[in-house]
Structure formats: C-alpha cells, structure tokens
Amino acid sequence: MRIGFLVLITLLASSCDAVPDQFGKLDLKKWRGDRGGCNGVRATLVPDFKAEIQNLKGKRANTIGDLLGRPDINQIEDRNQKFYIYFLEKGTHCDGPGIKSDSRSVAIRMSAIGLATEITFQNGLP
C-alpha cells in the first residue's frame, strides 16, 4: 500500500506542467525577471508582448499570473472585475511600494469570472 501511494504521488508531481519560459514570441523568463520594468528589459519586449495579445485574451487569471508573474499592481474594480497591471519601464514606482507612477504600463482586465477580456497600454494606471 505504501508503494502504491508513493507511485501515485510521483505521477501527480510529474503531471504538473512547469511554467513555460516562452509564450509565442514573448520571452516570459525575461519578462518575469524584470519586476516593475525597473531594469528596462520589459520595454524591449513590448513588440513581442503585442504580438501575443490575442493569445492572452480568454486566459484565466491564474494562468496570466503564472505566465507573466505576479502583477505589479492588482487593482480591484466594480462588479468583481480587476486589472493586472505590469509596468513596462522604470519610474517612481521603482523607488518604493505605493508610490504613484506615470510610467508606461499594460493593464489586463479580468472579468468577474476570472478571464482576461481586454489588454490596454497607458501611462500609469488605467
């Protein structure tokens, strides 16, 4: 019985997919490694990100978080909608948490059922 349990645990662990390092043209490892866009790497990845926008729409919030990493800002809106905001360049937000920034960012709107429905680019927050 103990061997069966160990086999089951091993199968379950091996069936879990690792987070990919690439999503189409977008290098996710570089994206996730540049938290807040403070190192200037995300700015160089914007064309590749834009090429994958349609493939990101419809993905679940957890999948977006796994792919792109934890959002720089998680903004809650009315009717259980939220925005995942990722800064694309260095700005005042890099100086400390909670500091307002007008740096370029991308916002991914999540519907009440947790699906990415809209992706917009702006300066600061949407």
Rank of each mutant, 00 (worst) to 15 (best):
G36P: 11
C16Y: 03
R79A: 15
A107K: 04
K29W: 06
G24E: 12
Y86F: 10
K57M: 15
G24A: 08
G114V: 03
V19H: 00
A51V: 15
A18W: 06
S105Q: 02
L56G: 09
C94M: 03
K90H: 01
L6K: 00
H93W: 04
R104D: 11
N39G: 14
I113L: 13
I76L: 09
D102S: 12
L56H: 04
S15M: 10
M1A: 09
L11S: 04
F23H: 15
Q75C: 07
V41S: 05
S111R: 01
N80E: 07
R42D: 14
S14A: 08
T44L: 11
G24I: 06
G124L: 03
P71S: 06
I113W: 05
R32K: 13
K25T: 10
K50N: 15
N74V: 09
G36I: 14
V7H: 00
I64N: 05
G124H: 02
L11N: 02
S105R: 02
P126Y: 02
A43T: 14
L68E: 04
A116W: 01
I73Y: 11
R60K: 12
R79Y: 04
L68W: 01
R35Q: 11
I53H: 08
T10Q: 00
R109H: 04
P47S: 14
F87I: 10
G65W: 00
K100C: 07
D102W: 02
C16Q: 07
G40T: 08
A107R: 07
D17C: 12
Q75S: 14
G33T: 09
F23A: 15
E77Y: 07
D66K: 08
D17A: 13
D17V: 12
F83M: 10
Y86G: 02
N62T: 13
E118I: 04
K50L: 12
P126Q: 11
A107E: 14
R2M: 13
P97V: 06
G40A: 07
I108E: 02
A61M: 12
S105A: 14
G65F: 01
E52H: 12
S101A: 04
D78T: 05
V41E: 13
D78V: 06
A51F: 05
S14I: 03
P97F: 02
K25Y: 10
F49E: 09
R35A: 15
D48K: 08
S103N: 01
K100L: 07
E118D: 13
L8V: 06
I119P: 01
E77I: 05
S101G: 04
L12V: 03
I64Y: 01
I99Y: 00
L45Y: 09
E77C: 10
Q54C: 11
N62L: 10
Y84K: 03
L67Y: 08
I85W: 05
N62G: 12
M1N: 06
R42Y: 11
F23D: 12
F121A: 07
L115N: 07
G33F: 08
K82H: 12
I99S: 01
Q22N: 14
D21C: 14
R42Q: 10
S111G: 07
